[in-house]
Design a protein around this nucleic acid. Sequence first.
DNA 1: CAGGGTTTGTACCGATCGGTACAAAGATGG
DNA 2: CCATCTTTGTACCGATCGGTACAAACCCTG
Lengths: 183, 183
Amino acid sequence: MRGRAELLPGLAEVFREHGYEGASLSLISRATGLGKGSLYNLFPEGKAEMAACVLAEIDGWFEANLYAPLRAAERPAAAVSAMFDAVETYFRSGQRVCLVGVVALGSERDRFAGAVRCYFARWIAALAGALTRSGREPAASLALAEEVVAQIQGAIVLARALDEPAVFSRAMTALRIRVAAAG
Amino acid sequence: MRGRAELLPGLAEVFREHGYEGASLSLISRATGLGKGSLYNLFPEGKAEMAACVLAEIDGWFEANLYAPLRAAERPAAAVSAMFDAVETYFRSGQRVCLVGVVALGSERDRFAGAVRCYFARWIAALAGALTRSGREPAASLALAEEVVAQIQGAIVLARALDEPAVFSRAMTALRIRVAAAG
DNA sequence: CAGGGTTTGTACCGATCGGTACAAAGATGG
DNA sequence: CCATCTTTGTACCGATCGGTACAAACCCTG
């Protein structure tokens, strides 16, 4: 037997590629190599629970790898730069979609509204904090943090729409420069 | 009988709210008030044709209301400002989703790849042209245009994720200021 | 009003949806 | 090795999916 934790990454990929509605149990079964029996044994509440767990896993990953470092950084500017590194790697230059963003746009938004809001709110807050500690005004930091997170999401959309990963990389580079400039 | 044109807006709303896969024929039937017989009479190729027509309609609207004015403007700065007005109205401060962006993120992206790419490429090109004619370097104009379009898409995601339309309005205001600043 | 083509609703198709039931198979503890 | 409990595959459930068939209703033109 495998625990839930070790199949969450594969599960996440199915949701990313097909969305919540499009991720059918047969797709999930194929992707995980588990039959329905096993899936419903691990996730008694079915697909909704799978998606909730995946969102929680993603949230945990961002918390550990982006938000916490941003909050704890002694050198905030370096932490922000590290965040961009992590973002570029995680989203594979825009070829990998942000599942939380996809959920936010989809019809199942209300079901996961809490998790979605929390993910973005904490991202913005952590980034804004780091920007403030690197010398910017708090209000300007918050505004810039919002812009940065939105730009990342938009760059994913645009890179996929144009089928041009370079768009994503260019956007990240431009953001680095804007953030490095004095507030 | 009603022609295809007059039910495209309602059809578009169904696709926006439920995505391509989620927009079932029964939903479409209810939203348009037409039975399957009528729908397949108007769109012999079924759902795919409906979606293609909706995308074409959206593309036409943006061409007429945003791209063409941007290209033809004698006062490019005013045209850019008018574009932001149109965007804020069209997307209802981020409460209405960009169907083309949703398709770009979804699994049916390949099916509509041409239309999606065309929509965004023309938007960026028209905006970059206006920015150039208002005195910016061509390369800088292109980069800024890309950023602006990405920011709009990201602001929609963020406004919906946080369930806070003000996020969208703030983002648009910030973009206006950035664009108005000297290149 | 009659004829002919179009538009419409409805019944139906096989496939698949999310979910359940349950018995065989596997692991675990004594 | 047996008894017990968990994990697994498979068959099955009603509902709904996208799509088709087709006859009744409708609208023109004569």
